[in-house]
Design a protein around this nucleic acid. Structure first.
Lengths: 237, 237
DNA sequence: AGCCAAATTTGATCTGGGTCAATCGGCTGC
DNA sequence: GCAGCCGATTGACCCAGATCAAATTTGGCT
């Protein structure tokens, strides 16, 4: 989908009521710093399918996801797509070396982000090593996830990929919303396929297979994990 | 291969004659800092096949590769292996969150590293934000490479994988040793296969195919790039 | 409610790359 | 010099997952 209007609420920005205040990069800041920090960023929201930034764009901002889900992906010249991750509230985007984003990001459903212009943000970091350390921490965590995903893409079967995805996604939702066996899947089957290095048909068939085995139930907008232990067994080698 | 003797030269350590002084993490330090820094680490070398650290090991050190090549990999419980990268001189290893390495590393041929105990290194970083910034920079670069590799693993054909690998590996060697169309391949075919998410047979067949097409020549310990442009065409979509 | 468009599921068939099985070198040690 | 071994190559065959092709379900819009 094409980017459309980006609406912002430049005056409605207070970290006080921010859902991710304690989780995101912000968790490394004390109350006074947070006060100063909030003037740097502004809340921006995106409608479903809107592109937040593109692979080849010059980086002008950092983003802190406040609400919603984003798909992060890279495209090959012929249109093949690999989704390199899904961003959820608390995730921090925009770190790069080249001065360009090296992947694209768009909204899955409504997304709200806290957007920081690169310059002021960089200056704010300058004399706050604990914020830099926090960003480093997030980068290292992502790196670890990226390596896990390489194992999945390079060495796992379709069944293992889907099972691993369901468990991993559930874990992220649990961390945000608390325990539940209902796993919301706001992304399309195509998104899941492009994340797992499969086709949409294989993803669909594997879901159906899991349902027939009685380990999940496919419900509207997600699945219900009926037998987490069996899914875990499928995910492991 | 099993780990064998680790020899060290605790007194022979001077950054002055270090080949990677200007390239690695060290590039962020001035002469005085480098003097202090060199007392933190010690040179250790490993013979071919020796394991430098294992996935499940508690992290006790950071490593700066000085010489040689290492394979970095993760294993699934049933033995399937995914190589997540190759480390070359200048690469910095050991960053993690959990306190455990999340991949294993072993030497391909003789390897020399500069090993820093975690504690003293952490304290040294403490009041040197430019070193932290340098480490962050390296982490972000790796993250970008990891994403590129996800695209390769998830969405590229065997031919594209091999061609992309040869060009990428050549680029790294060129950055270290200067331009050349001879591409040394110190790693085994199995290593290449496990890096690309293929089998050894497919890698071998693809090499043979490239040679028959006249775009590479398979030589002892590597290949010669006869027609880089054609290989690039194969690598792109 | 009813209609169109898009997403998903299902089925039939095909194929790229895996698996299994010989060879084929090239070093090493004697 | 040659026996033994290990990595690499080659060949024959197979299969997991891709591709192609319909249904079928869902969702948005009058």
């Amino acid at each position: 989908m094409k980017p459309s209007v980006v609406t912002s609420e430049p005056n409605g920005h207070y970290c006080d009521d921010c859902a991710v205040r304690g989780a995101a990069v912000c968790s490394s800041l004390d109350a006074a710093e947070l006060r100063e920090f909030e003037h740097l960023g502004r809340r921006v929201h995106f409608v479903s399918g809107e592109t937040v930034f593109s692979e080849e764009d010059i980086t002008t901002s950092f983003y802190n996801v406040l609400e919603g889900v984003m798909r992060l992906y890279k495209l090959l010249p012929d249109g093949r797509r690999q989704i390199v991750g899904f961003a959820l509230p608390g995730d921090f985007l925009g770190m790069n070396l080249s001065g360009r984003h090296n992947f694209s990001a768009d909204a899955i459903g409504v997304v709200k982000v806290c957007q920081f212009p690169k310059g002021p943000f960089g200056r704010f970091i300058e004399d706050r090593p604990q914020l830099l350390r926090r960003i480093n921490e997030l980068a290292i965590r992502e790196l670890s996830q990226a390596r896990d995903h390489m194992v999945l893409l390079g060495r796992r079967s379709a069944d293992e990929k889907v099972a691993t995805f369901l468990l991993g996604w559930r874990e992220r939702l649990v961390a945000l919303n608390g325990p539940s066996d209902m796993v919301a899947l706001p992304m399309s089957r195509q998104d899941i396929a492009d994340y797992l290095g499969l086709t949409i048909e294989t993803v669909s068939r594997t879901f159906t297979k899991l349902e027939r085995l009685g380990v999940i139930e496919i419900i509207h907008g997600g699945i219900s994990l009926l037998d987490p232990a069996r899914v875990e067994a499928m995910a492991a080698a």
